[in-house]
Amino acid sequence: MKLFLKEQGMRIDLPYGELDVSGNEEYGFRPFQLMVASIAGCSASVYRKILDKQKIDYEDLIINAEVERNEMEANRIESIHLEFVVKGRYLDEGKLYKNLEVARKNCSMIRSVENSINIKESLECIEINS
């Protein structure tokens, strides 16, 4: 991965496209946003694979991420709460929680930061009738 200097930050050329990174969100994605998105995105991707493999009937998966940062420590990320919202039919909440634990153990991004950022997951099941 190669990063290139630009006036208000950095640019990364990736196979999918260009990514602008800046401490000012008028000029690009802020580094903390990318870190949270990579943790949430990795976790969701692994979770989705598990749900698909088990043929769980879900229509939608949404992740809400809440971030706590410490201004006294260079605004470091202290904790991330990932709320998984699963919408579907005949959902087994116990099974969905177990799958979330398996996803956590297999998410490379969570495993990379687990000793420095407190990551908590929760689950909301929304049953769809029809």
Score class of each variant (00 low, 15 high):
I56T: 07
F29K: 10
L51G: 06
E71C: 09
F32Q: 05
I62W: 01
F32H: 10
N64R: 13
A65T: 05
E59I: 11
K55P: 13
K53Y: 07
S43T: 14
I63T: 00
F32W: 05
S43R: 06
Y58F: 14
V46N: 10
F32T: 11
F29L: 06
N70S: 09
F29Q: 08
C42L: 05
R69D: 10
R48H: 11
F32M: 08
R69W: 11
C42K: 10
A44W: 01
M72D: 12
I39C: 02
S45T: 11
S45L: 05
L61C: 13
E66P: 12
S38K: 01
G41N: 06
F29R: 08
A44K: 03
K49Y: 08
A37Q: 06
E73A: 12
G41P: 03
S43F: 15
L61F: 08
C42E: 01
V36I: 03
N64Y: 10
V36Y: 00
K55Y: 14
A74N: 13
N64M: 10
R30G: 02
I56C: 05
D52V: 09
R30F: 00
M72S: 13
K49H: 14
D57H: 12
I63L: 02
R30D: 04
D60I: 07
L61I: 15
I50V: 00
Y27M: 00
L34S: 00
I39M: 11
K53L: 08
Y27K: 01
E66T: 07
R69Q: 13
L51Q: 06
Q54D: 06
I62Q: 04
M72A: 14
S38E: 01
C42A: 04
Y27D: 00
L61W: 08
M35N: 01
I62Y: 04
D57Y: 08
A40P: 03
G41I: 10
G41H: 07
N70L: 09
E26M: 12
R48D: 08
V36E: 00
Q33F: 01
V36H: 02
L51F: 15
A44V: 03
K49G: 15
E68C: 09
S45M: 12
Y58C: 06
A44C: 03
C42F: 00
I56D: 03
S38L: 00
I39N: 03
L51K: 04
E68K: 07
A40S: 11
E66G: 14
L34F: 00
